[in-house]
Design a protein around this nucleic acid. Sequence first.
DNA 1: CGGTAATTTCAGAAATTCCTGAAATCCGAG
DNA 2: CTCGGATTTCAGGAATTTCTGAAATTACCG
Lengths: 204, 204
Amino acid sequence: MNLPPLIQSFVLHFGEMGSRWGINRTVGQIYALLYVSPEPLCAEDIVEALGLSRSNVSMGLRELQAWNLVVHKHLPDDRRDFFTTPDDVWQILRTLAEERKKREVDPTLSVLREILMQPAGSDEERFAQGRIAEMHGLIDQLTTWYDDVKRLETERLANLLSLGAKITRLLEAKDRVVTLGRRRPKAAREAGDTRADVAQAEGE
Amino acid sequence: MNLPPLIQSFVLHFGEMGSRWGINRTVGQIYALLYVSPEPLCAEDIVEALGLSRSNVSMGLRELQAWNLVVHKHLPDDRRDFFTTPDDVWQILRTLAEERKKREVDPTLSVLREILMQPAGSDEERFAQGRIAEMHGLIDQLTTWYDDVKRLETERLANLLSLGAKITRLLEAKDRVVTLGRRRPKAAREAGDTRADVAQAEGE
DNA sequence: CGGTAATTTCAGAAATTCCTGAAATCCGAG
DNA sequence: CTCGGATTTCAGGAATTTCTGAAATTACCG
């Protein structure tokens, strides 16, 4: 590996973390390298920087493409493929979440639903179904929330997070806030909420 | 493996998912089994149900204990160790999040901070530091939000999630809502927010 | 068409992770 | 202290995952 020490630490740590989250270490390293590079890189650049075999880099890039994590660029008058990451880290996070949902969460939900449809032949099985239903409910709520939030642009998403704290305090102070907007007609919501709406909804 | 088919599918799927998220397959299976069992199980029960070696089960349970994911029970007049999972799935999720934060997220933040402290010797390194700073910012915001939310009891956490959707609409309609409470003195915040506070803060 | 450079494929080697059985340790009871 | 059941440890074998080099494929160019 032939990199400035500062970049090398990042690449190595990122690879390490990747492998703890089920992502192949070298794929993580490739991503980290692309992430911190000012210009798009071609496969050969990556081979030189990380000291991997050409074929390994090829497989890694293909993996990253399959995850939509990488942007493919063509320079004019150059047949090589160049790659970068998106500029916006929030966008990267969204993509990662989306892909993992598609590959792992959604299939899990349908497996759980299938299990819940099966007839239980014993108390043991009935109990298990109860537990599985709880888990299904949890995942379902989380994904519903996620579906809601994922479309937000970066800036709004960041805002929502920093707001999270304050909403928390509201909830602690006053349970009824959760009825916010729940019984108001669709048309009114689409017209845009205002501070008055908030106060009104809370007061219901 | 010697289990009712319904439970077996769950255990197998859970093990499979575990392994995709960096958790050893059999550890995942052990957890799944404990999760759906109405009574605490001892190591020998697990050996029989899953067909693993006794030592493997021992290592798996120790791993789960290290992650705080398992509840240790002692029955009177029985020297064996029995294990269950917490009843509340949200609590399980919290524990999982907490442990992963401790082991992976926090160390990552400090590695990134360290990298950001180093003097950059080239433009390349300076650029990389900029990117790393963005990533640090992202993780930092997420963990701040998480620290805020993690203390919520189960019911409130569920409420917050279902609220997420509606807050989103507020944000879309009206940016200014994000100033909510931002410039109010600490004492006022600790006294607990009220609707009037919200309206006042927004009006600033 | 060849020629050439880039990329991909894939069988097997290398590395890593996981699992096991045998032995060691622990611990309460007698 | 000794016995016996429960649990843990750990070296090495098994299984899985990752990586590589050689060969194949692709695609552009003259």
